[in-house]
Design a protein around this nucleic acid. Structure first.
Length: 190
DNA sequence: AAAAGTATCAACCGCCAGGGC
DNA sequence: TGCCCTGGCGGTTGATACTTT
């Protein structure tokens, strides 16, 4: 069968965005709002894939973005949230106003991961590395993140979960439970 | 001052879930 | 009821900046 490509690649730009492209995208979103990303490029006069436009807007152009270094509080919160949620960057980002999942993911991979390793903590399980040497038993689709979630249910919840409810199932990953989670948790917007 | 190595981050890719037809 | 389209997510890559030798 084959899935039709999200855009006509032969006629789309790739790579870094130019100032003009940014301006066009911002102007269009301001005028028409977010959404309908597929038709946005042609409507805005951009030779870009809709997905690329969406990514650019969310990660870079959105007016409510908080650029710059992560504060110590944010840093600690990310670690705690990661111990609860695993690599659910979008969920973590939802708890950090003005930060994007991509930004947090990058920050995790470049800063926090190394910091934890330096402290002798496994960045995946959030356990001491000596402990991590003991192979975590993959209980049917159970991930390291899932393991950490269980762990978080015990001590992590006490730390990070002051304003977080414990997750029910680590494997309940995709949107559905995420939405549920977002509804349950007191959000930054609400 | 230049080259090599390393770190950072924006952007892309492929996959998945939900909704509409 | 099943298929297709679209939006969204996480992982990965590539370009650039910075640091070290």
């Amino acid at each position: 069968m084959g899935r039709s490509p999200c855009c006509e690649k032969a006629h789309t730009n790739k790579g870094a965005w130019t100032r003009e492209e940014d301006e066009r995208l911002v102007a269009h979103v301001r005028a028409h709002g977010e959404g309908c990303w597929r038709s946005l490029p042609s409507a805005a006069g951009l030779l870009r894939c809709g997905k690329s436009c969406r990514l650019r807007w969310i990660n870079y152009l959105r007016p409510d973005l908080k650029r710059g270094n992560f504060s110590r509080d944010e840093d600690e919160l990310i670690v705690k949230l990661h111990s609860l949620l695993g690599n659910k960057w979008s969920l973590i980002a939802a708890r950090l106003p003005g930060r994007t999942d991509n930004e947090i993911k990058n920050y995790w991979n470049t800063h926090i991961r190394r910091k934890l390793l330096g402290r002798g903590i496994d960045p995946v399980t959030h356990r001491p590395l000596t402990d991590a040497a003991t192979p975590a038993v993959p209980t049917g689709g159970g991930t390291a993140a899932g393991e950490s979630v269980r762990q978080a249910g015990e001590d992590g919840a006490a730390a990070a979960g002051r304003h977080l409810l414990p997750l029910q199932h680590p494997q309940s990953e995709r949107s559905g439970d995420g939405v549920q989670l977002r509804q349950q948790l007191p959000g930054p917007q609400g």
